Amino acid sequence: MSIRIDHAVVEGKFSLDGEVHEVENNLWVVGDAHQCLVIDAPHDVEAIRELVAGREVVAVLLTHAHDDHVRVAPDLADAVAAPVHLHPADRPVWELTHPARQPDARLVDRQTFHIGRLSVQVMHTPGHTPGSVCLYSPDLATVFTGDTLFAGGPGATGRSFSDRDAIIDSIRDRLLPLPPRTRVHPGHGPSTTIAEVVAQFDEWVAR
């Protein structure tokens, strides 16, 4: 059974520390013709359901708990009858958006999800938030990095719950060792490769 990545972009708001920004988020869905995993739940349940296209959603995997990544997570979970998974270190961030409802399950470092012959491994990469994770599929030669890593550099720090030293360590220790041809699909903006990240990393650290 062939496996694939489905992608779309949705618009909405990101709010934290009293600031509100208009943002565009990537939607990523990975799976085969029958089952899939949804990565993050930003802004628009129906746009996500269009990518799911009637397949069984095994899980909704959250890369972190900023509101632009989890805003419709409870509604999506109800709509597709799937559990929402979040790293427990991001529970305080989650509760800023959803104080009355908790995620359904924990994400654990090195935990693996399976869709047929497709495997997706959880990599805890703190820094952007304490519970940020990346989701690596060796079968697809792809890592979904949320807001930990973009084509232009590390994710933002300097806000509540963030730590620049931690995000640099996460990228250096967990992401740079991946095979150079690995595609990097972030939560916002264009994709890149690990090879391109390696070539720019020292410059990013020096900024």
Results as ranks from 00 to 15, higher is better:
His188Asp: 06
Asp78Met: 13
Glu203Tyr: 08
Asp17Trp: 05
Leu27Gly: 13
Asp109Met: 04
Asp104Glu: 14
Ser137Ile: 06
Arg172Leu: 02
Asp165Ser: 15
Thr192Ile: 05
Val30Cys: 08
Val205Lys: 13
Pro83Gly: 14
Val30Tyr: 03
His66Gly: 00
His66Cys: 00
Ala41Asn: 04
Val57Ile: 02
Pro126Ala: 06
Gln35Phe: 10
Pro130Ala: 11
Glu196Phe: 00
Arg101Lys: 11
Pro74Trp: 09
Val23Ser: 11
Ser15Ala: 15
Ala199Arg: 12
Tyr136Glu: 10
Ile194Arg: 03
Asp78Val: 13
Val205Thr: 14
His128Lys: 08
Arg207Leu: 14
Gly155Cys: 13
Pro126Asp: 04
Pro99Phe: 09
Ala53Trp: 08
Leu51Gln: 04
His34Phe: 09
Gly187Tyr: 13
Thr157Arg: 01
Phe113Asn: 05
Arg55Ala: 09
Glu203Ile: 07
Arg207Asn: 12
Pro186Gln: 02
Leu86Ala: 09
Glu203Met: 08
Pro190His: 05
His128Met: 10
Ile3Phe: 14
Ile168Gly: 02
Leu27Glu: 11
Thr182Gly: 10
Ile115Ser: 10
Ala82His: 09
Pro177Ala: 11
Ala199Trp: 00
Tyr136Lys: 09
Asp173Gly: 13
Ala89Ile: 00
Val93Asp: 00
Val70Asn: 09
Pro186Lys: 02
Val120Asp: 04
Gly189Ser: 02
Met123Glu: 06
Asp165Asn: 13
Asp169Ser: 15
